[in-house]
Amino acid sequence: MTDTKPTELPPDRPPLLRSREPASGVRGGPPALDAERLRELFSGAGAGTVGFEEELLLVERATWLPADAGALVADLDDSRVKRELPACQLEIATSVHKDVAAAVGELRACRALIAAACGPDLAAIAAPVHPLLDGPVPLSPSERTEALATRYGEVIHRQLVSSLQLHLAFGDAGCTLSVYHALRDLLPELAALAGASPYIGGRDTGLCSVRPVVASGLPRQGVPPIIDSWEQFADDLAWLARGGADASEWWWELRPHLRYGTLELRVLDVQATTERTSAIARFVYALAARLAEHHHLGRLQPPAPTWRIAENRWVALRDGVRGELLDLRTGEARPARRCLHDLIDAAEPYADGSLDDVRALVDHPPVEHLRALGLDSVVPWLAEVFTA
């Protein structure tokens, strides 16, 4: 990351999901990655670049229940839009950008393409979970889906969860690992900010984000482990492979991504509108730039214990910005809203413009708007604002 005003990469740069050949240790690649190759991978990514992956749901307007997305994705025939694991889920993967605004613009354009392809009977929504459904759903047909269903059974059929995933590149392996631990400490604050899934199965769960509860049925979810070195990471991936899984199943809420040489932030609930997405993404990008600078200045603290972050993470999914988070070192309790406002103030000098839009999300949380709408109105509203 850099603190200079970025520029968009050339338009012929391939989409994020196809921007690199599979690295060794990734499904379809050579069998193993050693520490030296990992350092090369994470030092080779374009510093300051950003890309999004956004998971969405297709629903029938007559019932607001899930619809199979296969035909729509095939008709679109756009490499940026693909099917996901559940049959009703699709994903947008943007190109690689050096400008968050450009990435958001591409995301908005892709949403518009999807909305136009839906016709009168279907609608796309950006919902972290389906508000009216709680149970197994059909899966998209593929060899990978079959393999996952064999490994994880019915649990994999229940993973109708959608997140906004940000890929951040630093162009330096040491910086990447250092920022990984700094962002890891802040996962609860980011989750509280983005919490937008109070409903599931036609009921209010009392949580601000039920998505991670659903996701926790699978292993390797939630707060990721400390990675002491690239040697340790290589050993961990090799150990995972011996159990029959691979790096794509390292499903933590933050992970080094082996295809792109990025940090992939996976803690954020998908947002109903691209305006909300823009606010959160601009903040995260600026925050990462600040953390990268602090790494080079030697100002980042050692990683905190995983269980302490997990304690704050639970408060975040329950209470969102209305909760209190404990300082990971001292144990001092502070309102999550105050923590977020302090982070926004610290990140703003690294942003391209004001971060007042993300301050507004702290003061007027998306989850509270969803509750004000009520369960009967929430899915039609999500469809209405999909291209906003």
Score class of each variant (00 low, 15 high):
Leu193Ile: 13
Leu193His: 03
Leu193Trp: 13
Leu193Phe: 13
Ala194Glu: 06
Ala194Ile: 10
Ala196Asp: 10
Ala196His: 04
Ala196Leu: 07
Ala196Ser: 08
Ser197Lys: 07
Ser197Arg: 08
Pro198Cys: 11
Pro198Asn: 10
Pro198Met: 05
Tyr199Cys: 02
Tyr199Trp: 09
Tyr199Pro: 02
Tyr199Thr: 09
Ile200His: 08
Gly202Arg: 06
Gly202Ile: 09
Gly202Gln: 12
Arg203Asp: 06
Arg203Glu: 15
Asp204Ser: 06
Asp204Gln: 14
Asp204Leu: 08
Asp204Phe: 14
Gly206His: 04
Gly206Ser: 01
Leu207Lys: 04
Leu207Ser: 07
Leu207His: 12
Ser209Cys: 13
Arg211Asp: 13
Pro212Thr: 09
Val213Pro: 01
Val214Phe: 02
Val214Glu: 03
Val214Lys: 00
Ala215Glu: 13
Ser216Pro: 07
Ser216Leu: 11
Ser216Val: 03
Ser216Asp: 02
Gly217Phe: 06
Gly217Ile: 02
Pro219Ala: 06
Pro219Phe: 13
Pro219Thr: 05
Pro219Arg: 06
Arg220Leu: 15
Arg220Gly: 12
Gly222Arg: 04
Gly222Val: 14
Val223Trp: 15
Val223Tyr: 07
Val223Ile: 15
Val223Arg: 10
Pro224Leu: 10
Pro224Val: 07
Pro224Phe: 14
Pro225Tyr: 13
Ile226Phe: 12
Ile226Leu: 13
Ile226Ala: 14
Ile226Arg: 15
Ile227Pro: 00
Ile227Trp: 05
Asp228Tyr: 12
Asp228Ser: 15
Asp228Arg: 14
Asp228Cys: 11
Ser229Trp: 02
Ser229Arg: 00
Trp230Glu: 13
Trp230His: 06
Glu231Thr: 02
Gln232Ala: 14
Phe233Leu: 15
Phe233Val: 02
Phe233Lys: 08
Phe233Ile: 04
Ala234Arg: 02
Ala234Met: 05
Ala234His: 03
Asp235Gln: 14
Asp236Val: 01
Leu237Trp: 05
Leu237His: 13
Leu237Gly: 11
Ala238Trp: 01
Ala238Ser: 08
Ala238His: 04
Ala238Glu: 03
Trp239His: 11
Trp239Glu: 14
Trp239Arg: 07
Trp239Met: 01
Leu240Val: 01
Leu240Lys: 00
Leu240Glu: 00
Ala241Val: 00
Arg242Asp: 05
Arg242Val: 00
Gly243Phe: 11
Gly243Ala: 10
Gly243His: 09
Gly243Ser: 09
Gly243Tyr: 14
Gly244Thr: 05
Gly244Ile: 10
Ala245Ser: 15
Ala245Tyr: 13
Asp246Gln: 13
Asp246Arg: 09
Ala247Trp: 07
Ala247Phe: 07
Ser248Cys: 07
Ser248Lys: 12
Ser248Thr: 08
Ser248Asn: 11
Glu249Ile: 04
Glu249Phe: 05
Trp251His: 00
Trp251Arg: 00
Trp251Gln: 01
Trp251Met: 04
